[in-house]
């Protein structure tokens, strides 16, 4: 039902583009359409290959498996399990996201068989030493930002909407983000992140989009470049599988103890 309303709202808003629509309304309508097209995947899993590069070009890599469960009326549930580096193999992070409410998060330490609650206040902290902050890899929910349409722009070969996103959740490290959204597939092509002093901090480039089960576009490659420290992180997402029949129990605290 929610989806149908969103469709009607976005079709209406987009079709009356230019008539009595504020930039905020238009920005929201564009992002609502992005959200609508991402919804309904039920569950998914993929492999994530992360390569960290520092300013001197030194590299280190991480490999982790990600499983996601779509939750009706709440944020998604997600489990990430590390395969490498070897010292963190089997370490898992479980997140139950709740939009604007604080998320629940647990860390599983396989050598001790211990499940620890972890604080989710740390939105702006680096994820495993990379240039991705926790808030950059968290599940995206429409209500987590307020939006403002800025302009239409050609980004290289892509015709895009440019939208400003302002975090509505607490503890964000950003004053705002500027996002280039591909008009054809309604997916991001680029996001610029502005720090708390409103200076350009990072740029995230999305590429290698692939269509899955005839419906869902997923970027196969994300490159985050930090303009202030010269470091970058490349994230490759491979072997997407949708609708694996995951249940709530697969994303419970107790399932963490059997994960690998």
């Amino acid at each position: 039902m929610k989806n149908i309303i969103l469709i009607i709202v976005s079709v209406l808003l987009i079709s009356i583009d230019g008539f009595a629509q504020t930039p905020e309304e238009k920005g929201y309508a564009i992002q609502a359409e992005v959200n609508r097209r991402d919804n309904g995947f039920v569950d998914s899993m993929h492999e994530a290959y992360m390569t960290l590069r520092n300013a001197r070009g030194e590299e280190s890599t991480r490999l982790f498996m990600v499983k996601t469960l779509e939750v009706e009326g709440d944020g998604d549930k997600e489990i990430g399990v590390f395969q490498s580096p070897a010292d963190v193999r089997g370490t898992a992070v479980l997140t139950h996201s709740h939009g604007l409410e604080p998320d629940d998060q647990w860390l599983y330490l396989p050598s001790l068989k211990r499940v620890k609650r972890i604080s989710t206040v740390n939105k702006s902290g680096p994820f495993v030493g990379s240039e991705f902050a926790f808030e950059d890899i968290a599940s995206w929910e429409l209500e987590k930002y307020t939006y403002k349409y800025l302009r239409d722009e050609m980004l290289g070969e892509y015709d895009t909407f440019v939208v400003e996103n302002i975090p509505a959740y607490e503890y964000s490290g950003y004053t705002r983000q500027v996002e280039w959204i591909d008009k054809t597939i309604y997916q991001p092509r680029r996001i610029d992140f502005y720090d708390r002093k409103n200076e350009l901090l990072k740029t995230l480039i999305f590429s290698d989009y692939e269509l899955h089960i005839d419906r869902f576009w997923k970027a196969g490659k994300l490159v985050m470049t930090n303009h202030q420290n010269g470091k970058s992180t490349e994230l490759l997402r491979k072997n997407y599988k949708f609708r694996n029949g995951f249940s709530d129990r697969d994303f419970s605290v107790d399932a963490l103890r059997n994960i690998r």
Binding site: P102, D104, Q105, K116, R117, I118, S119, T120, V121
Partner: peptide, 9 residues
């Protein structure tokens, strides 16, 4: 019991 409230565990 373990609980996470803001910065507190």
């Amino acid at each position: 019991i373990q609980g996470a409230v803001d910065n507190w565990l």
